[in-house]
């Protein structure tokens, strides 16, 4: 499978490739040169041109987009109702950009459209890296903090926890991102459970796999409806959940530093 990853840094791209391969359970090839965005809202601004480029000029099967949520509204299953769009939700916004762009493009390279997978890291991708290592970090914890008006942690604190410095070099950032992503290579369920916005990305990706030639679903790929998103997967066997994470979790213990 060939895909493009639109991210904010080479460190993110390296880690996302590992996570995407973990979800797809197989290697992927990346479109080169790698795509970069300058954070929000640049991602949404540059995405239409990227989609057009991928659709007409490459043989990419799809585009993976991951951006930080920062302090924006977190996507919830409530947002997945038909014809619903939350203007402050980055997932809703990026899906709308994708829909509006692709509906204008005619088929090319024998395909109806490049597929898309969108993940919003809440509040930043470093939270994903801490999953399973720091039980206080989860999407639910962040949402509860937002509701109380007291965020459980800041972006800067997450970065410090992951990189152990306030000014990581790109080399160090990449190394740490890869180390943490590789922890999830064989089992992403904890990450999906603690971070439903990652689960949405994973579900999009699994939809791609189903759409591959030879799979039963391939024939229906063209015009495939938008996949339902933000599915909160069943918790992993011994995972007690984001609301009450436990280091005593037998199957998925927090990884020690």
């Amino acid at each position: 499978m060939k895909l493009a990853i639109l991210s904010e840094s080479p460190a993110d791209e390296a880690a996302l490739r590992v996570l995407v391969e973990a979800v797809l359970r197989g290697p992927v090839r990346l479109v080169r040169p790698g795509l970069r965005a300058r954070g929000w809202p640049n991602v949404s601004q540059v995405m239409p041109a990227i989609l057009r480029h991928l659709h007409f000029n490459t043989d990419a099967d799809g585009l993976v987009v991951v951006v930080d949520a920062d302090d924006s509204v977190v996507h919830t299953p409530h947002h997945d109702r038909p014809d619903y769009f939350h203007p402050q939700c980055r997932m809703c916004k990026l899906r709308a950009v994708y829909r509006q762009t692709m509906k204008k493009l005619p088929p090319a390279h024998g395909r109806e459209r490049a597929l898309r997978a969108i993940g919003i890291a809440v509040p930043a991708i470093e939270a994903w890296y801490l999953c399973g290592r720091d039980p206080t970090v989860s999407e639910q914890a962040w949402i509860e903090g937002q509701q109380k008006g007291v965020p459980p942690y800041t972006r800067a604190e997450l970065k410090k926890r992951v990189y152990d410095t306030e000014r990581p070099s790109l080399e160090h950032e990449t190394r740490r991102a890869m180390q943490e992503a590789l922890r999830h290579r064989h089992d992403c369920r904890r990450l999906e459970y603690d971070f439903p916005s990652f689960a949405a990305l994973a579900q999009d990706l699994r939809g791609w796999k189903a759409a591959q030639p030879g799979s039963g679903a391939a024939a229906s790929r063209a015009g495939r409806p938008e996949p339902a998103s933000s599915p909160v997967p069943a918790p992993p066997p011994a995972c007690v959940g984001a609301a009450a994470p436990s280091a005593a979790n037998g199957d998925l213990p927090p990884v020690k530093a």
Partner: peptide
């Protein structure tokens, strides 16, 4: 900082 990049 929530609205966009510093450069923009």
């Amino acid at each position: 900082l929530q609205e966009g990049s510093l450069g923009d």
